[in-house]
């Protein structure tokens, strides 16, 4: 019995808890990508760099608050700085839309032209991030680091394995739940949200019934910018802030959106968790876990790891390929053009 508990705690510590946190971050990123897809109908390659830039603004505001001596006690100051980052990101994407995307929208350009434009935007966001904060790794986490420490957990339960839960992980999940609940409430219950869904379903019919397309696009960008900033900040708190890792997040985020069904908000959330859990589970070494469960004679010799952690992006890709082969519309039947 104790072995079973130990095995479970070990798995929770290294797989469940990290995967839930990472999945929340991916879900928020994928939700932004999928909303942009639903309304503006293109895959935004600049989303990763938008996350980096939003996070940069949050970090700057955090430093300002820290210098002024304002904090949240056990919680990281970054939470307080979040609105500043969201505002900055929203202003940025609205200017981008005004100067870049609106022209192609009026021309009714091909989606791939939007994608190429988003590559140009990506270069510019990347440059801005480099200008403002540079290319070095930054840590901006403060407050209490742990909710439960591995040692305390061991003492508390008397088990051999410890379970550590970091503050950033709890915050990630809570903030994700609040943000997602807000977005779904907004989409389902408010007039503007309904207009967005109508516009996404059938642009011509929506225009016919008097929905203002500019307003729908504006709100979509603001929500996407907010989600990107939140996702980026949570990822930065949980791991660390390095501008280049945000570009690499693009692949798991896109994979999450496609697995869930492109343009489907619920699908993006589910997809985010599927990708995160697969990534963590496939790259985890099960030696210790099996050690608790299997009898002495069956103990594994190697690490029992399916793929090295260096290959974690391969997991998103493999899932992506399987979905493309088996069910190109994704789990929740997204759009196919």
């Amino acid at each position: 019995m104790e072995n079973l508990l130990n095995a479970f705690v070990l798995l929770s510590n290294f797989v469940l808890v990290p995967a839930i946190a990472y999945g929340s971050q991916l879900a928020l990123g994928a939700l932004g990508v999928t909303l942009i897809y639903a309304v503006l109908r293109f895959s935004n390659f600049a989303h990763g760099d938008l996350m980096a830039l939003g996070t940069t603004a949050v970090i700057l505001a955090t430093w300002g608050l820290q210098a002024a001596g304002i904090g949240l006690g056990v919680l990281p100051t970054a939470l307080l700085a979040l609105p500043v980052g969201i505002l900055a990101a929203a202003v940025l994407v609205l200017l981008t839309d005004r100067w870049v995307y609106r022209f192609y929208r009026r021309q009714r350009s091909d989606p791939v032209i939007f994608v190429i434009a988003s590559v140009g935007v990506m270069f510019i966001y990347n440059a801005l991030t480099r200008f403002v904060i540079g290319t070095d790794e930054r840590r901006f986490e403060d407050g209490a680091r742990f909710v439960i420490r591995a040692g305390d957990f061991r003492e508390m339960t008397g088990l051999a394995e410890g379970l550590a839960i970091r503050t950033s992980q709890v915050i990630t999940v809570v903030v994700m739940l609040v943000s997602v609940a807000f977005v779904f409430w907004f989409l389902q219950k408010t007039r503007t949200g309904k207009a967005m869904r109508a516009y996404s379903d059938n642009e011509d019919l929506a225009l016919l019934s008097g929905i203002n397309p500019d307003r729908v696009v504006l709100i979509t960008w603001i929500i996407a910018a907010a989600l990107a900033t939140i996702a980026g900040t949570l990822y930065g708190l949980d791991k660390s802030f390095r501008p280049f890792t945000y570009f690499q997040l693009l692949l798991p985020i896109f994979a999450a959106a496609i697995v869930g069904g492109v343009g489907q908000p619920l699908g993006a959330i589910v997809g985010g968790f599927i990708i995160a859990f697969s990534e963590v589970m496939v790259t985890y070494a099960y030696k210790g876990f099996l050690g608790y469960l299997l009898p002495e004679a069956w103990q594994p010799e190697g690490l029992v790891q399916m793929l090295g952690t260096d290959y974690k992006f391969a997991v998103s890709f493999i899932i992506l390929v399987v979905v493309l082969l088996v069910r190109p519309t994704g789990i929740f039947r997204g759009r196919v053009i």
Partner: peptide, 24 residues
Amino acid sequence: VSLGLRSDYLAIATLGIAEIILAI
């Protein structure tokens, strides 16, 4: 795998294969 589907699936699939090739 990715041709014959949505136009930007190819973009995303190639983005992925490049990361994997580099990882290997």
